[in-house]
Design a protein around this nucleic acid. Structure first.
Length: 213
DNA sequence: CACCAGGCAAGTA
DNA sequence: TACTTGCATGGT
């Protein structure tokens, strides 16, 4: 019989080992939004290169990026990979962000949560994880972000079935936890750190993993 | 050399 | 509905 620990026990163990992660690694809400799109299936290090390049050219505003020709935008996004695709996706988001909220994170934040999430998911190129990352980390909405690391950690510890869906995992967290932004923020960030540091590919239950202590 | 990385949408059966 | 595939750079 494999021991099962609860969601809260996982949080406590992670917090004891890692402590606060201070996410999202960005200077402004808008930078979070851009980063959320660029990091789709891509290492954060490569995203940082792309964002650094955009900052170097002083182009990290909704208006400037929106006005940039597709080819030039794609060239800036090159270090992040999938650059043609992401140039389109970023423009799709910027079109929505400018039209609906005048490119103002403060205005966007005033919108009600369920509606806001639906809007984001309607933008071509924004799926559940990207939408929730923007909601939580750019706008401070109490939504739990699920990613590949999260699913792997939970299925490995038998809290969900392997290959289960996004909302199944998300609902588990949101049922078991108080809906607090700070809690959701740190929990997801620590799950990513766990994935990066310990649980990469097939290496189940290494004794250094904080969850096995 | 192979495999992985803070996904998503479009195509196929 | 449930798979499969394309997208691309940079690190290990």
């Amino acid at each position: 019989m494999v021991s099962k620990m609860g969601i809260l026990a996982i949080y406590r163990k992670l917090y004891a080992s890692f402590g606060p992660q201070h996410w999202w690694p960005a200077e402004t809400p808008f930078e979070v939004m851009v980063g959320a799109i660029l990091t789709q299936n891509t290492s954060w290090q490569n995203v940082e290169r792309a964002i650094a390049g955009i900052k170097r050219e002083r182009l990290l505003t909704a208006k400037k990026l929106w006005r940039l020709p597709q080819k030039k935008l794609a060239r800036l996004l090159r270090p992040a990979g999938y650059y043609n695709l992401k140039a389109i996706r970023l423009k799709n988001f910027l079109g929505y962000f400018r039209q609906r909220y005048a490119a103002s994170p403060a205005k966007m934040r005033r919108a009600a949560l369920p509606r806001l999430r639906e809007e984001l998911l309607r933008v071509n190129g924004i799926g559940p994880e990207t939408a929730d990352s923007i909601l939580l980390y750019a706008l401070g909405k109490p939504v739990f972000v699920v990613d590949a690391y999260t699913k792997r950690a939970l299925s490995r510890h038998h809290l969900v079935a392997e290959g289960c869906g996004y909302h199944e995992v998300q609902n588990l967290f949101m049922r078991k936890l108080k809906k607090e932004v700070k809690l959701f923020n740190e929990f997801h960030a620590m799950l990513v750190k766990l994935g990066k540091d310990f649980c990469r590919k097939r290496n189940p239950r290494c004794h250094l993993c904080p969850l096995n202590k």
